[in-house]
Amino acid sequence: MTLMFQAGTPTPPALASADARPMLSRDADSMFWMARYVERAEHVARLLRVHGVLLTDVGDLTQDLEAQMWQTILTTFRSGELPEGDGPVGPRIARHMTFDLNTPNSISSCIARARENARAIRESISSEMWECLNAIYWSVQADDAQARFEDSPDDYFYGIMTSSMLFQGLSNQTMAHDQRWNFTQVAKYLERIDVTARVIDTRFEVLTKMEAESDQPINIHLMGVLRSCCSLETYRRLHLADLDADTVAQFLILQRDFPRSIRFCVDQARDALEQVRKSNGSRSPSAPERILGRLSSTLEYTDINEVLTGGLSTFLQQIQTTVAEASMALQKTYFLY
């Protein structure tokens, strides 16, 4: 019964191309979600931070409007109804979106999920990335996390934001820019497109109402939207004192060379997908690449006035749908075939 080393069995080819080592589908999946959750945690932190400061700046709003403003955060992160409890709406939502582990998109949830994914691919990411993410995880899990938050929400959110940026910087500087890294880029940019589209959509809706119902200085709110997208300084440099809703929308959606604008993110995500595909030795564009490519052309050849005439909200919702389609196509092509 010596079956070992039998000659005659044809050896199958190694299938994958020789120069690039393909990655496990499960690893690619985890890589994608790790990066996406880190990016999401950063957005949640930034929005909560900007909101806190903004509402101090604008002074008294009607209770109704203030509640609506806070509600935009829940809408942006698809986090449903206002959490139960007493006290002012703002702090309640802030606490909820920071700590509640039952809310899938709270900061603590996002960090925990990012780390769970990182743990599953511990061997594929650099030690620096892992240590960074692990340190954030332990800091939001720590016994004194609530106390630090109550002491200064601003510091707390700022800590999350800088940690996320540190993590992304480490990804850029400690990983080979190979397929693994490209999956993190796709994830990061898809998440950013999605959040940015929702921020503009929900906030502009409230702004319109505000303009009609109150004498609130709209400028402050437009600055708030820009800040929520980490874009105020660049916007100012480009447009100086022209602060109006149409220009802000144009900037956040169509600006070609700014890393927070939707158009930039779409192009980056498409390019990263192209790299993934090429490293697998395939010549024709993959399904998610085609979806993002079409979106990229639309953004390139669209005039903001056409968008505004046709309805900003409709346009932004189309973008969200397209991102969801691209995300699905990506999973079907690379993770779950």
Partner: peptide, 25 residues
Amino acid sequence: DLVEGQDLVVDNGFVYMRTTAGLRR
């Protein structure tokens, strides 16, 4: 690579892992 059982398949007496570029021996 660190694989789990679900990442491996056996076909015709050979073991493969599921990668983003298809199956690899």
